[in-house]
């Protein structure tokens, strides 16, 4: 009887293991792929970029904004608006996923971004404060591999219970070659596709894969924002002190 049980288990075991295989891609589970994508996006020790933001409405009217962006590690980010005049001097500081500050030169004041505001539009763009500020998806989402093609992994990201993001679901296409997400779909709580972000012109700069162009489309309003990196340099030795409220005020 015991012998029969052992034979039965031996026969069933490969079937059980085989059933598990489709859930695990060759690169591991969804969370593992997401972690690799996050590591690929935040690979440099620091990054300094001059960025052109083009805001285009549904009628094709466009506005251009120039910003400068510094990033240290995975969490810290400082953004300064250089033009046009109505936003010149505005600064945005991210110290962690939960700690973001905005400096408005007209008021000479630094304001902490409240959690309910983080999902609103960042300075008229189609990116929210969370989209711009959050550098680590694994803090807010768990991922499951939905599909695997020859070139890409397709992940479904679900917010963790503690997450403050307003999205109910994200679908992320991750390039197998470099683990840079090529496309992300953002769904709201009703399950409606709200926004689509596409990363284009990904190239190796200073040894790090960097998308040169990010396009965020708001499908509800027809508005879109194109973020183009004009110049990018990595690992220049940015100091921790630079990412402080003291420095944020100097944005003016």
């Amino acid at each position: 009887m015991r012998r029969l049980l052992e034979i039965g288990i031996a026969l069933l075991l490969p079937i059980v293991l085989w059933a598990e295989i489709p859930r695990q891609s060759s690169a591991g589970g969804g969370d593992e792929i997401l972690k690799k994508a996050e590591d690929a996006m935040n690979a440099p020790k620091d990054r300094t970029a001059s960025v052109k933001l083009t805001l285009i409405d549904k009628d094709g009217n466009s506005k251009v904004r120039q910003i400068k962006m510094w990033q240290l590690g995975k969490e810290k980010r400082l953004i300064r608006f250089l033009s046009p005049a109505d936003v010149k001097g505005v600064g945005f500081l991210v110290l962690s996923d939960n700690e973001m500050y905005l400096y408005m030169p007209a008021f000479k004041k630094i304001r902490r971004i409240a959690s309910h505001v983080k999902n609103e539009s960042f300075m008229g763009t189609d990116f929210s404060y969370n989209d711009i500020g959050k550098c680590q998806y694994t803090n807010d989402f768990t991922a499951e591999t939905k599909e695997e093609t020859e070139k890409e992994y397709v992940l479904e990201l679900t917010p963790t219970p503690k997450s403050d993001v307003d999205y109910a679901k994200l679908i992320m296409w991750v390039d197998k070659a470099n683990y840079i997400p090529s496309k992300i779909q953002f769904y709201n709580k009703k399950g409606t596709l709200l926004k689509v972000m596409e990363n284009e012109d990904t190239e190796k700069i200073d040894g790090y894969w960097t998308p040169r162009k990010m396009i965020m489309k708001n499908l509800k309003t027809g508005h879109k924002t194109i973020m183009e990196l004009a110049t990018v340099v990595h690992d220049t030795g940015l100091k921790e002190d630079m990412f402080s409220k003291r420095m944020l005020k100097r944005a003016e």
Binding site: L82, S83, P84, A85, D86, K88
Partner: peptide, 18 residues
């Protein structure tokens, strides 16, 4: 109506206004 002039730089001085 508010008209903003494009920020410009002249001799190391940044000029902007509205």
């Amino acid at each position: 109506s508010t008209i903003y002039c494009a920020p410009t730089s002249m001799g190391g001085v940044d000029i902007s206004g509205n």
